[in-house]
């Protein structure tokens, strides 16, 4: 791509990553259809952060928007990555879980509400401990419930990525959309470095980190379903395509035996790199 084309793309493109959680939800839903539930003026603050001297946010970092996607009913739950690292506590977690639970209840009453989760999260909010963990378990259960009726589509755009218990939630989604800026992993780089040592995993080596947990790698290993440019229009188009495709024949979390066999076959004596990880995930019988 020429220098001129690069500049034109930068000026004309509509970045998705640069949008706040609320703007992301608005940009995906059909124009004029968006209605926020349990919004900031309901003032559902985290009661635990202020008790620990931490400033709260009026929506507790989770934005729930009901609306239409290509004319079909949908609910979008967007996590704000820049508030407390997108961590899930009692209130934000309950908002996210309830949104998905209500969407499943809709389906039982004949309303085909779809679910979309915009992940930008480090996982559980440590200041809220077990309440955050319980909320994430409820989110997992709610995704499993809703995917009996409708696809739940996860989007990890970046720049925070998706880690901890919420990476399991991403794994439970029917389809997962990522960008090159996205990262997906159970433990974050600094946690792995602390546990395994800097020789094993240097969290400041950004090319190394992205080569193993970045969006491009996750898609190449078939742990994500679409890798897109950071562009709101492209992301919305892909989301609508996955919606139209309906439930996958065999969702990723039903292929756990395949993944476990791959991990057992891995030679952990050799340092893993991007190529060996790709070969590993594509080896063996097709799931």
């Amino acid at each position: 791509m020429s220098h001129q084309q690069d500049i034109a793309r930068l000026l004309q493109g509509r970045s998705f990553i640069e949008l706040s959680a609320r703007e992301r939800a608005h940009s995906l839903l059909d124009a004029g259809s968006c209605r926020e539930l349990a919004g900031p003026f309901e003032r559902l603050y985290s009661p635990w952060l202020s008790a620990q001297g931490i400033v709260t946010q009026a929506d507790d970092g989770v934005v729930i928007c009901k609306g239409l996607l290509d004319g079909q009913p949908a609910v979008i739950a967007a996590i704000e990555g820049s508030f407390q690292g997108g961590s899930l506590g009692e209130v934000g977690g309950a908002k996210l879980a309830s949104a998905l639970e209500l969407a499943a209840a809709d389906n039982r009453q004949g309303i085909p509400t779809r679910g979309v989760i915009l992940f930008e999260t480090g996982g559980v909010r440590l200041q809220e401990a077990n309440l955050g963990l319980a909320a994430i378990a409820e989110i997992h259960a709610a995704i499993a419930d809703l995917t009996r009726y409708q696809p739940v589509i996860g989007i990890i755009a970046g720049t925070v990525g998706c880690f901890g218990g919420m990476s399991i939630a991403a794994g439970l989604c029917s389809y997962l959309i990522v960008t090159r800026e996205a990262r997906l992993g159970l433990n974050g780089p600094q946690v792995i470095e602390q546990e395994a040592g800097v020789a094993e995993y240097d969290s400041r080596n950004r090319p190394f980190i992205w080569s193993l947990t970045g969006g491009e790698q996750r898609q190449a290993c078939a742990l994500a379903d679409a890798l897109l440019e950071d562009d709101s229009t492209l992301i919305r188009q892909q989301l609508l395509q996955f919606m139209a495709r309906g439930l996958p024949e065999q969702p990723r979390h039903r292929r756990s035996r395949h993944y476990l066999e791959r991990l057992l076959a891995m030679d952990s004596a050799a340092q893993a790199d991007a190529d060996s990880a790709r070969q590993l995930f594509h080896s063996g019988e097709k799931p």
Binding site: S20, P40, T56
Partner: peptide, 15 residues
């Protein structure tokens, strides 16, 4: 009613 900003590092939220 108006909401702007986010409680991010070096930022603020105004309701």
């Amino acid at each position: 009613a108006v909401l702007v900003g986010v409680v991010a590092s070096g930022d603020l939220e105004v309701l």
